[in-house]
Amino acid sequence: MFCMSGGFRVTGKICTQCSLTDPVGGELTVEASALPIQSIDIHLFRVESILIGEKIATESSLIQTIQIADGDVCRQMSLPIYIVLPRLVTCPTIFAGPFSVEFKVTIAITFVSDVSKKRLKFDPKTPSPWRAVESVPLELVRTN
């Protein structure tokens, strides 16, 4: 369950542990929003880390984006989340000594704003005043 503040409230749930062969599922409900919503996107990231001496080098890669809403959404209506995992860039979550491969799901809500029209570069990792972003870890497991 997640909830965001600042003039709006969004609740929902998303599966944080799933099989590689199953879709990631969940739901999202916009309970209140003072500003109209432009879109709601789900970003799937692959996060690779390695321990080098006493430092951890981490690299995140955006591997998939799913738009679950385009335009302002009805309040109090449940929006389904259904993400089929891409086979070529996903693997089980791995923690092998100094090396790890993890995944995370980021929910990004973009609001209608005159300022957002002036921004040229889209970067899903950088929150902006007209965007709300929430990330949750995703554990992928192999099942027989």
Score class of each variant (00 low, 15 high):
D72S: 11
N144L: 15
I40R: 00
M1K: 06
I56V: 15
S113F: 12
V115Q: 15
R75C: 06
P98A: 10
I94P: 13
Q17T: 12
V47G: 09
L120D: 05
V136N: 00
L20T: 01
P36W: 02
C18M: 11
S78T: 14
F122V: 15
G97S: 07
T21D: 05
F99A: 13
K121I: 13
D123L: 10
Q38I: 04
A108Y: 08
E27N: 11
K117V: 08
F95E: 15
G26H: 02
Q64K: 07
P98M: 06
I14E: 00
F103P: 06
I94T: 15
P23Y: 06
V112W: 01
V133Q: 12
D72A: 11
R87I: 10
G25P: 03
M77I: 15
P127L: 08
T29C: 05
G26C: 00
A96R: 11
P127C: 07
M4R: 02
V89W: 13
T126S: 07
I50H: 05
P137G: 05
F2C: 00
C18K: 10
L20P: 00
K55T: 15
L44S: 04
Q17G: 10
R87Q: 15
T16M: 03
K125Q: 10
L28T: 03
T11V: 09
S113D: 03
L35G: 04
F95L: 13
M1A: 03
E134H: 08
R87M: 09
G71V: 10
G12E: 01
D70E: 12
L120Q: 13
S5H: 11
A32H: 08
V73E: 03
S135D: 15
F95Y: 14
Q17L: 09
G25L: 04
C74R: 15
A108F: 03
V141P: 01
V105M: 06
K55D: 08
I52M: 07
D114E: 12
V112G: 02
S33I: 00
T143A: 11
I63N: 01
V115S: 12
T106E: 07
I42W: 04
R131S: 08
L88R: 13
M1V: 02
S113P: 07
T143V: 14
F99T: 10
Y82I: 11
V73S: 05
S39D: 04
H43M: 06
V105E: 04
A57M: 10
S60M: 14
D114S: 10
T58W: 13
T58I: 10
K55R: 14
E27C: 05
P98W: 02
Y82G: 13
A108M: 07
L62W: 00
S49E: 13
A32T: 05
V101S: 04
M1Q: 03
T58C: 06
R142P: 05
N144Q: 08
C3T: 05
P36G: 06
T58K: 08
E48I: 08
A69F: 03
A34I: 11
C3N: 14
L88I: 15
K118E: 02
V141E: 04
G12D: 03
V112R: 03
R119N: 06
T106R: 06
L85T: 12
G25D: 02
G26D: 00
E59V: 14
P129N: 15
R75M: 06
A132H: 14
Q76E: 05
E31L: 09
L140I: 07
V136S: 03
C91A: 13
I66Q: 13
D72N: 12
E48D: 14
I63H: 00
I66A: 11
A108G: 10
